[in-house]
Write a protein that binds this DNA or RNA. Structure first.
Lengths: 183, 183
DNA sequence: ACCTGAACACCGTTCAAGT
DNA sequence: ACCTGAACACCGTTCAAGT
């Protein structure tokens, strides 16, 4: 499972696939899987061996970005009050989603996997950390979980380019208000 | 543009395409456009002549359902307070979305077209009616529009089958709280 | 003016052969 | 054990010919 057990060429192919995908994403537009394989200089079958689904590939492409999002959560909770921490985390999420549209898909795929595993992975843990802090001090409603939050912010992936400035952040505030514990 | 100007065979073909699509949707699973044409007994080209995009077709397939949603809005506003009216309208939306998953796509496509036209169509008008009532009496925040609401409820189309009971309605309440004018 | 459907285009996925 | 890439499968879209 880990890199040490893999053959050296397999490890390198995997890295080249991820790097090729990252570059194609940066070029903008739709990313075709066969184009990723071609750019990486591997056969299509090799791509499928390493990444059975499209989500698996892009989760890895954005692993570092997602990791930063995940790591930020505990720090924000420690520094700010729960609602401010969640709001600040949303800010980061929007920033990533704007520049790297695929990050949101990686986050969604991650939370979906977490849910299917019946065990929280890093992403589910991060969002849960933010929510639990607010539930503990009564500022966030107790009947929401990580999956709920990811579902609600999913609109970000359906925004047209021209709508970002007008809606992306403002609607996160609407969501945030919805997550507040009601009067 | 209207049916009277069309040739009789064209009018009938259009109706048969919509009916075929409706039946295929009812059968469940993914609907292939060529399968719609085949079932309707028309050439693929004919389908494209009548419905240039997939959204155009399904907006028509669900026109009646969408019409009911649209018509319900003014009646609800007349009968209930604005927040209750919006909540009741959400109830209907969930009911349609649950039984006929495509309805939401039709609504989204409709609002998107409304937005692109810079003029509100029926769907945009319906949601706007609900929002304006609440803005007028101060129960709904003034900085949201129809497109915002449609974006936020879009999570419904991404719910897994097993999640409906647990999340569909509960998250609409979260959205509703977010739309409330804050303290 | 409208319809047909073969043909094309596109892209994800597999698998027999090779190293 | 892993890789290659031709071939397949699938489905949306077009367009020359026909009515």
């Amino acid at each position: 499972m880990n890199a040490q057990r893999r053959r050296a060429d397999a490890t390198e192919n995997r890295a080249r696939i991820v790097e090729a995908a990252r570059e194609l994403v940066a070029d903008g537009g739709e990313v075709m899987l066969n184009a990723v394989a071609k750019k990486a200089g591997v056969g299509q079958g090799t791509l499928y061996r390493h990444f059975p689904t499209r989500d698996d590939l892009f989760a890895e492409v954005y692993r570092q970005d997602v990791e930063e999002l995940v790591d930020a959560a505990p720090a924000l909770v420690a520094e700010y009050d729960p609602l401010s921490a969640l709001s600040a985390w949303f800010d980061r999420l929007v920033a990533y989603a704007r520049v790297k549209r695929g990050v949101l898909a990686a986050v969604e795929a991650g939370v979906r996997r977490d849910l299917a595993d019946h065990s929280h992975g890093p992403i589910g843990d991060a969002v849960t950390t933010l929510l639990e802090a607010g539930k503990a001090d009564g500022t966030i409603r107790s009947d929401v979980d990580a999956r709920d939050v990811v579902l609600l912010v999913g609109y970000l992936s359906r925004l047209d380019d021209g709508e970002w400035d007008g809606r992306a952040r403002r609607l996160l505030d609407v969501v945030l208000d919805g997550l507040r514990r009601g009067a």
